[in-house]
């Protein structure tokens, strides 16, 4: 008995919202980053669920590219965090407020 498509989508939505909440609530930049990974993965689940539903492999290829992107993003993002920490001795997101008037 396979679960219907809705289950996967509901599950993905839940996972996504948890990621959003993490981004909005936490002040540790590394945790914020992890939350972003959660959101990316939630989207991956929907891709793969639809791919199975339609028996079409394109969705899985997309997931593959998302993973590539995630890897690149984490590498650059963590590098930024390290550089940031070196300058400000902090990884609190509220200390990163240079982008303002």
């Amino acid at each position: 008995m396979t679960p219907p498509l809705e289950y996967y989508l509901w599950f993905a939505a839940l996972l996504f919202v948890i990621g959003v909440a993490g981004v909005l609530l936490r002040r540790n930049v590394i945790i914020v980053f992890m939350s972003i990974e959660l959101m990316l993965n939630a989207v991956n689940v929907t891709f793969i669920a639809f791919s199975r539903q339609m028996n079409n492999i394109d969705g899985q290829i997309f997931v593959f590219f998302v993973m590539t992107l995630a890897a690149a993003e984490v590498a650059v993002g963590l590098a930024i965090i390290v550089a940031m920490f070196r300058n400000k001795e902090s990884i609190n997101i509220e200390d990163m407020n240079l982008l303002k008037w």
Binding site: V23, L24, V32, I93, M96, N97, L98, L99, K100
Partner: peptide
């Protein structure tokens, strides 16, 4: 209008959401 630009990342993320 410029006061909207708080520079806080979570603020921007919230408006995105």
């Amino acid at each position: 209008v410029r006061t909207v630009q708080s520079g806080l990342v979570s603020g921007y993320a919230l408006s995105l959401f």
